[in-house]
Design a protein around this nucleic acid. Structure first.
Length: 716
DNA sequence: ATAACTTTCAAACTCCTTGC
DNA sequence: GCAAGGAGTTTGAAAGTTAT
C-alpha cells in the first residue's frame, strides 16, 4: 500500500473515531493509545502499517511455500535468495523483501533432524562454524557449484563419500563408475574435488554435519505412545519437525547479529548418547498462589520425590510473575531441569494447563512466538529444557486435593514455598533464545503476524494516564486490601460489569484525562476573556474533573452527593472514602463486613450508586456549561438535580428487575437473589425483612426508591 | 474460507459455611 | 477442630457462531 494511501486512510479513521469530519481539531486521546489492546486502556483500533507488514510477510510465506504452491511466473525472471541459507525463490514484491529484512527473517530451526541436515543448502550454510572461512569460491567450490550443480548438504556428503567406495581406487586414472561419471560431467580431478568437499564439510558445526555422530535427537523415533502406565509422553520432536529448510524460516527474530550463527543449536541441543543414567524417576509437582489475580499475589511451587527426600523443593515465585499457573509451570520446569538424564521422567501434576503445554501445546506456542501466551518466559524456558533434555518426559494428571499422597505432599511444599521470605531465582536461561526466535513463517496467519508486530511496537505512554492508574491502584488497595493489576482496572471499564456503557465511557475518558476540560485548554485558549481552563463560576484556577465532581457550585454536585449519601446510609455499611481515585476505580471497589467478607449486594449497589451519581453530576455540568452557556443564573436547582439522579437510579432498579426474567433472557437473566441483595436496603416501601418473595419479578409490588424521604435533622 | 468474536468447558485456588 | 462442599474468583483451551 503506497504511503499516501496509508496516510489518507489513517486520516479517515481518525476523523471517524473522533467525529471530526475533516476539521483540524486536537484528539482528546492519541490514536496510538486507541490502538492498544482493551486491557491496556486502548480500543483495539486497527494499525494499518502493522497490518500491511503482516500482509507483506504472508506474501513472503507464499513465495516460500512447497514448490507446487509457489509462484512460478514470470518464467524468465531469475530466482534469488531472500533468506540466507534458504533455497532461492522467484523474486517477491520489494516491500515484502523490505519487511522481511526489517523483521530479521532467517532460517532458525529449533530441532535439527537428520532430514533437515541433509536437505539444507550447503552454500552460505547457517551452520558454518564462525571460526572457519567460507571457501565457496575457490577452484573446487566453482567445480562443485558450476560443474556438479550441488546445492544441498547431502549432495556434498555423497560426493565426499565416493572416495571411500569399495570399488574406487585413489588414483587419478580410477575408472570406477563414480569417477567415470564425474569426469563425464566435466570434473577435472574427481578425487581432489571430493577431498575438498570433505574439507568444506568440516567447517560445519557438528550438529549440522550429516557425517557426524552428533545426534540431535537421541530418542523419540516413534510417534507418542498413548498413556504408558497412565503417563503421556511430551510431543515428539522427531516426528513433528519438518525436513524442509523453508519450514524453519522465522520472522520477528530478536537475536543479535553475532548470536545468530551459534544460538539455536548450541543452547538447546540435548546431550549425546548414552542419553540416560537412571531408568525411571517419578516426581509430583504442584503450585499454589494466594491472592491470585491481584498485584499482591504470592505464589510457590512444590516438587516432591518422596518422604524426606533431599531432592524435594519448595520454591517461591518472583512477585512480578506470581500466579497459580506459573506456580504449576515452574514446578514442572524445575523437575525437568533437575532430571536431564533419566530414561523416563514421570511428572504427576494436577494442572491441566501444565500437562497440555508439555504434551501438545508448547510446539505450537513456540511456532507462534508465544504471541498469544501469558507466562512467556517460563513457557519458553520449559520448551528449551524439553528440547535439551535426554530424558523421555511423561506426564500424568491427578485431581487436586483428592487424597493422592504425592500430590498432597507437593501441594504442601508449594504452600511452604509461597510463604518463603525471599522469592527464589528461577533459571530461565534455556528460554532466552527461544523467546527471541520470533514467529515461524510457514504456519503463521495474518492475524498472528499482526498481533506479533503490534506487540513488539513501542507502547504509547501517556504520563497522565499512568498517574491516574497509580492513583486508582493505591486507592483500591487501601479500600480492598489488595492492589489491582492495571489490566484489572481496564477490564473493570470493559464488558461484563455493573456499570452502564455511558458511565464506562465517561470513566475511561477520565482515566485518560481525555475530557476537554481544565488543562486541555491551557495552550489552546489563552485569552483571559474566553479562557476555558479556569471554572468561571467558582474562580477555581483549573476546571478539573475533581473540581467538577467535588467542588463546583454549578454542577449540582452538592445535592447529588447528598442523595448518594442518603441512599447509601440506608445500607448501614461504612462508606469507602470517595475521591477521584475511588470514582475511577469504582468497578473494583469491594464493600466488606467487619470480618472482611465481601458483601456482594452492597458492593453492587455501591458501584451502581457511585457511577450513576458522578455521571449525573457530569451531565448536569455539561448541561450548564454547553447548554446554558455558563450562565450563572441558570444553574440547575437542587430539587431537579435530586430528581434526575433518583430517576437514573430508578431506571437501574427497573432494568435489574426486568433482567431477572428467565423466560425472556434464559441463561443471561440476572440472578434474582443478587438483585434482591443489591436493592433491598434502599427500597422505599418494604422493610428489608418483609420482602415478598416475588418482588423482583412482580413489577406491581414495589415502587422502589422513587420518593426519598428527607432524613431528620438539620442540613441533611 | 478465514478471522474475529462469543460461549462453553474445565480446572485450581481462596474463602467461607455447614455439619459432625 | 476438621472435612466437605459451594461460591466466587482466576486461569486457559476449544468449540461454536458470525462477519467479511
Amino acid at each position: 500500500m503506497p504511503e499516501e494511501i496509508v496516510l489518507a486512510l489513517e486520516k479517515i479513521i481518525d476523523d471517524f473515531v473522533f467525529d471530526k469530519n475533516g476539521a483540524r481539531v486536537n484528539n482528546a486521546v492519541a490514536i496510538a493509545t486507541l490502538k492498544a489492546p482493551l486491557n491496556e486502556g486502548g480500543f483495539k483500533l486497527i494499525d494499518l502499517r502493522s497490518r500491511n507488514e503482516a500482509i507483506a510477510l504472508m506474501i513472503l510465506q507464499r513465495y516460500h511455500a512447497p514448490a507446487d504452491r509457489r509462484p512460478v511466473w514470470p518464467p524468465e525472471e531469475p530466482t534469488h535468495t531472500t533468506v540466507a541459507g534458504i533455497p532461492p525463490i522467484k523474486v517477491p514484491p520489494s516491500h515484502s523483501e523490505a519487511v522481511a529484512a526489517k523483521y530479521n527473517a532467517q532460517c532458525a530451526p529449533m530441532t535439527i533432524t537428520p532430514e533437515l541436515r541433509d536437505s539444507m543448502p550447503f552454500w552460505y550454510h547457517i551452520g558454518r562454524r564462525p571460526d572457519t572461512r567460507a571457501l565457496y569460491g575457490d577452484k573446487w567450490g566453482v567445480c562443485q557449484q558450476k560443474i556438479h550443480h550441488f546445492s544441498t548438504t547431502k549432495q556434498m556428503v555423497d560426493h565426499a563419500r565416493k572416495n571411500d567406495a569399495p570399488d574406487h581406487l585413489m588414483t587419478p586414472t580410477c575408472d570406477c563408475y563414480s569417477c567415470y561419471d564425474d569426469r563425464l560431467t566435466g570434473c577435472d580431478n574427481p578425487i581432489e574435488c571430493r577431498k575438498n568437499a570433505s574439507t568444506k564439510l568440516d567447517s560445519l558445526a557438528a550438529v549440522w554435519d550429516p557425517r557426524s555422530d552428533a545426534n540431535q535427537v537421541p530418542h523419540r523415533t516413534a510417534p507418542n505412545p498413548e498413556a504408558i502406565d497412565g503417563f503421556k509422553e511430551t510431543w515428539n520432536r522427531t516426528m513433528t519437525e519438518n525436513g524442509d529448510p523453508t519450514h524453519h524460516i522465522r520472522v520477528l527474530v530478536d537475536w543479535k547479529k553475532e548470536e545468530q550463527r551459534t544460538l539455536p543449536t548450541a543452547d538447546i541441543a540435548p546431550a549425546l548418547l548414552p542419553a540416560w543414567d537412571t531408568p525411571r524417576t517419578t516426581v509430583y509437582t504442584d503450585g499454589s498462589c494466594s491472592g491470585n489475580g491481584t498485584a499482591s499475589a504470592r505464589a510457590g511451587s512444590g516438587i516432591w520425590y518422596g518422604e524426606n527426600e533431599a531432592r524435594n523443593e519448595a520454591i517461591r515465585i518472583p512477585t512480578a510473575m506470581a500466579s497459580n499457573n506459573v506456580g504449576e509451570l515452574v514446578a514442572a520446569l524445575v523437575a525437568i531441569q533437575k532430571n536431564p538424564r533419566v530414561q523416563y521422567l514421570d511428572i504427576v501434576s494436577d494442572s491441566k494447563y501444565t500437562i497440555d503445554a508439555l504434551t501438545t501445546l508448547l510446539p505450537r506456542w513456540a511456532d507462534e512466538g508465544f504471541t498469544n501466551c501469558k507466562n512467556k518466559s517460563v513457557l519458553a524456558a520449559m520448551y528449551g529444557e524439553v528440547l535439551a533434555s535426554s530424558s523421555t518426559i511423561r506426564t500424568r494428571k491427578v485431581k487436586g486435593h483428592s487424597g493422592d499422597p504425592g500430590n498432597d505432599a507437593a501441594d504442601a511444599l508449594a504452600a511452604t514455598g509461597a510463604e518463603k521470605e525471599v522469592p527464589d531465582h528461577l533459571n530461565l536461561r534455556k528460554g532466552v533464545f527461544i523467546k527471541g526466535a520470533g514467529v515461524r513463517l510457514a504456519t503463521a496467519t495474518q492475524s498472528l503476524l499482526y498481533r506479533a508486530i503490534r506487540r513488539r511496537a513501542d507502547k504509547h505512554i501517556r504520563a497522565r494516564t499512568e498517574a491516574n492508574i497509580d492513583t486508582i491502584q493505591s486507592v483500591i488497595e487501601e479500600i480492598n486490601g489488595e492492589k489491582p493489576l492495571e489490566s484489572a482496572i481496564w477490564d473493570s471499564l470493559g464488558k461484563g460489569t455493573v456499570l452502564t456503557k455511558k458511565a464506562k465511557v465517561f470513566l475511561w475518558k477520565t482515566v485518560h484525562e481525555g475530557h476537554k476540560i481544565g488543562t486541555y485548554w491551557e495552550k489552546i485558549d489563552s485569552n483571559p476573556l474566553t479562557a476555558r481552563m479556569p471554572c468561571s463560576l467558582c474562580q477555581a484556577p483549573v476546571e478539573s474533573m475533581a473540581h467538577i465532581l467535588f467542588e463546583c457550585r454549578a454542577s449540582g454536585q452538592e445535592t447529588a452527593w447528598q442523595v448518594f449519601n442518603e441512599l447509601w446510609d440506608r445500607t448501614g455499611k461504612t462508606k469507602p472514602y470517595i475521591t477521584l481515585g475511588t470514582v475511577m476505580g469504582v468497578g473494583l471497589v469491594q464493600i466488606k463486613d467487619e470480618r472482611g467478607k465481601i458483601i456482594t449486594g452492597a458492593t453492587r449497589l455501591f458501584r451502581i450508586l457511585l457511577s450513576e451519581t458522578v455521571y449525573a453530576i457530569r451531565l448536569n455540568r455539561c448541561d450548564w456549561r454547553i447548554g446554558k452557556g455558563s450562565d450563572p443564573t441558570k444553574i440547575l436547582p437542587p430539587p431537579e438535580v435530586r430528581n434526575r439522579l433518583l430517576r437514573a437510579v430508578n431506571v437501574r432498579l427497573r432494568n435489574d428487575r426486568v433482567l431477572t426474567n428467565h423466560r425472556s433472557y434464559g441463561k443471561k437473566a440476572l440472578n434474582r437473589k443478587l438483585v434482591e441483595r443489591t436493592w433491598y436496603t434502599v427500597l422505599d416501601e418494604a422493610p428489608s425483612s418483609a420482602l415478598p418473595p416475588d418482588w423482583a419479578t412482580n413489577m406491581g409490588v414495589l415502587v422502589g426508591v422513587g420518593r426519598v424521604r428527607r432524613p431528620p435533622g438539620r442540613n441533611r
